[in-house]
Design a protein around this nucleic acid. Structure first.
Lengths: 240, 240
DNA sequence: TGTTTCGATTGATTTCTATCAATTTGGCGG
DNA sequence: CCGCCAAATTGATAGAAATCAATCGAAACA
């Protein structure tokens, strides 16, 4: 029986943790994992008296939200399938992780997972590496928000989502062809990601539609007709 | 002989690593540490064919710079005395760490330090926790840049620097009194931190001076006359 | 099928910051 | 001491996005 079959984490294609973990650690993880379905809007961690939990996303998108004193929300990160959600060693987390869509996750109780990290250095190392990647990502986002125009920001986010959600084959080259998918975020959430107002986001969508680069379907449907052009508008791709 | 005396890291007041490390690990660290003086402008890591090194800052400030394709720079982080500078497990780091002032650091060769992390889980745990803190910090900065006005951003950065550099006693309460120090950054660098142009930063300084909240001395001198008012302009303090 | 509602779109206008363009200031070397 | 150079300041203007204000459209419901 392969690692893939023993560990529930590995139901996700390209599930990084398992490939880096020893068989023993994967066994231990499988013992404490709980597969969960989580509805859109539910808080995964943060907020008030929330029990600490860690998750690996199997399906869906999680948004990390920073609630400002004035009541406005800033989305400071998005987590996609196979990614880790949680804040180890935190007394009170400054951010809130919320299901942006309905989710399917592998969930671990905070205490069990942290104990396992203590005793299994390979697990801690894996989460550490992911945290370093998240840090790089956060800093690139910061650069984008600080320096890019509204058009470049919207195009950048659409490219990012297209890479995560778009058809697998079409995206291999990442530079051409068309593809279609559903946006995991509302206009308001997109604005909260990019440091823009929703009206501005809407206008940028309109501009991209007018240029024939995208078409919006009903609900949250989006078709990218010209991936190359969208990439050019983005002025550089985001790492995650 | 106390830990404080054995480990060169601990010459910095409140040096977190040592207080969290076992005596054995601190010994090992002391064995591979090199105290260094580094002139302003020198690259600590990143850039082209740079040997990987890790450092703990004893004196001075390090800026983490993201060089954009268009040539502009975005400063995505500042590191102050006692903080860790380095990017473990990176093939090629996307950021460049540069001495914003003349520095005094405890330096470790990349290979020696990473080996030590492998064999001493308490060291890895310590650096992991710092990375998580850096991630929280980066995300708060992102929120600030995305949502605050130019005045709020400048005031926020000045408050942050004041907390790090200002007189120790005066800052205890953090809310009142006056204090004086030298800015570790030029106007251009402040602009690069905040996602603004240097002219805008200069105008915000002028406005704060006109209101009697600050006075600028010669060179990079700054005197904060009304810390309370500066804090109000900042609309919420930055965590780091 | 009509109505309600929430999200999205579009329009008009204002505000803030970037941009372009001189000056001014302070530090440094001759 | 003077002049040069880099950094900082100040001014005038343009431009991008925010803001204010309707309107539209699709899904949900009676």
């Amino acid at each position: 029986m392969t690692l893939r079959n023993r560990c529930q984490l590995c139901s996700v294609r390209d599930c990084a943790p398992c490939s880096e973990l020893t068989a023993g650690t994967a066994d231990e993880l499988a013992r404490i994992v709980h597969r969960r379905r989580i509805p859109m809007g539910q808080i995964l961690y943060g907020g008030v008296n929330q029990a600490k939990t860690f998750s690996i996303i199997v399906e869906g998108v999680v948004k990390l939200v920073n609630v400002q004193p004035d009541g406005s929300n800033q989305i400071v990160g998005l987590q996609f399938p196979s990614e880790f959600v949680g804040r180890p060693f935190a007394e009170g987390a400054p951010m809130v992780a919320e299901a942006a869509t309905d989710l399917e996750v592998c969930a671990f109780s905070g205490s069990a997972f942290e104990t396992l990290m203590q005793t299994h250095p390979d697990l801690e190392r894996t989460i550490f590496k992911r945290t370093l990647d998240d840090l790089d990502t956060a800093r690139q986002w910061m650069s984008m928000i600080a320096r890019k125009t509204a058009e470049e920001r919207v195009a950048s986010l659409l490219m990012l989502i297209a890479r995560k959600f778009g058809g697998k084959a079409e995206m291999a080259g990442l530079t051409s062809g068309a593809l279609e998918f559903n946006l995991p975020l509302s206009r308001t959430e997109i604005a909260e990601c990019l440091g823009l107002r929703l009206e501005t986001v809407s206008r940028q969508f309109a501009a991209l539609k007018a240029e024939g680069i995208i078409t919006t379907g009903r609900r949250r449907g989006l078709k990218v007709a010209d991936l190359t052009a969208l990439g050019q508008r983005a002025q550089g791709l985001l790492h995650a």
